[in-house]
Design a binder for these strands. Structure first.
Lengths: 226, 226
DNA sequence: GTCTATAGTCAGATAGAC
DNA sequence: GTCTATCTGACTATAGAC
């Protein structure tokens, strides 16, 4: 009990602090002093700060992605030979993340997770590797559900979908007793929690939209309306 | 010429490095050595590293937001008494950012800009303040164009819109000679540039979607399909 | 305005006693 | 496994010569 406790306690505390202040801005000293363990404990258990970071991601990321793939598979078998409806695909991708955002246990991690998408730090590669399969599977599934859509536009739309999710992950729990995050200052009313159906409605409609026409087809070429 | 040159040269170099490696990870030493100026120059011209960061944002952010508001106003006067179509609002918000992403001049800044949305760093407040008016104006405009939409759902959708934009800002130019960013590994084909009409089509369709119905209206209450 | 030199701080990491 | 004590390096910032 005692050794495991220190280790997971360090994971919990570090996860929380990383989510609140960022990885770079969180020193091992802050982590270990808040966890009431010795500074050297991090190096004993994880080898380095980087090792700690990777352990944090390993602990949460695999179950999250497994959950997404499980639900994707469920939709596909339920739909039989036809591709599953776009709504189900959106839900299979978003809901596992949203569920965890509500759970006290992985709340902070999901915020950290969202931040990683736009982080230039070096441990990106590990995260990317873990995400690669999921991304591919969902792009393929969306492509089957929307066969008329050119691949390039499909990829754009998947990026938009991921972006929408990330913005919500990063936003809502904000730093405790801190100025509101950007998306919150945008609005007069702070929405506490973005419900799944908001995602499904918005993103499914966007996914289902007809293909874009190129901006300048031939006529209306840079023409100024008079 | 000589003093202005050093100052703007520092702004340019710092902007580039911040975008590539992040603000925290970029030391004044790296900036000044790449700019071929002395370490003390930053403190002479900007007082501190924070001063440098703020100068970078001040230089680019105000024109960007002014551009967005100008185009919003243009759409509104063109539409007369009726609210402008959703497509125009999306374009007024997205295109100024997208245009700058293509321009060599502010390319790096736009990536940095995108990253700020999910950054927990302290100079957030300044950015928020500069963005506040734009966010409010666009939410109001979208609300007028979509009067049937409850405010909460409107806010969710605006968050999704911002998220889609940020994901594209952060992604495409990636770090030079570095592993591809997350959105790129998602797909088999790396799209070089997300065109405006992909945004407009996707986001307008999402914005125009009918209101979401609450997940559990009364029936189907946690019911497991058998 | 620009430079050198350095003060002062804090970071991640490690050796070795217990 | 845990701790104290310490090393080494990097950082921001400043004082003062030119």
């Amino acid at each position: 009990m005692e050794t495991t406790d220190t280790k997971t306690h360090l994971l919990d505390v570090a996860e929380h602090l990383f989510a609140e202040h960022g990885i770079d801005a969180t020193s091992l000293r802050k982590i270990t002093s808040r966890a009431n363990v010795n500074l050297a404990a991090v190096h004993y258990h994880f080898g380095s700060k980087e090792g700690l970071v990777q352990a944090i991601f390993a602990r949460r990321l695999d179950p999250l992605n497994a959950d997404r793939l499980r639900r994707l598979n469920a939709s596909e078998t339920a739909a039989g030979d036809t591709p599953p409806p776009v709504e189900d695909l959106v839900e299979a991708f978003i809901d596992p993340a949203l569920k965890r955002l509500r759970k006290r246990e992985s709340k902070h991690f999901m915020k950290l997770m969202g931040r990683i998408y736009s982080d230039p730090s070096e441990m990106h590669e590990v995260i990317h590797t873990r995400f690669l399969e999921v991304g591919r599977r969902f792009i393929t599934a969306f492509g089957r559900a929307l066969p008329h859509l050119p691949h390039e536009e499909l990829v754009s739309r998947f990026k938009f979908l991921v972006g929408a999710m990330v913005m919500v992950l990063v936003d809502p729990l904000s730093r405790e007793n801190a100025p509101p995050t950007l998306a919150e200052t945008h609005c007069d009313l702070i929405t506490k929690e973005t419900p799944l159906n908001h995602f499904v409605t918005f993103l499914s409609a966007g996914m289902r939209a007809p293909c874009s026409v190129p901006a300048s087809p031939k006529i209306q070429d840079e023409g100024v309306p008079s």
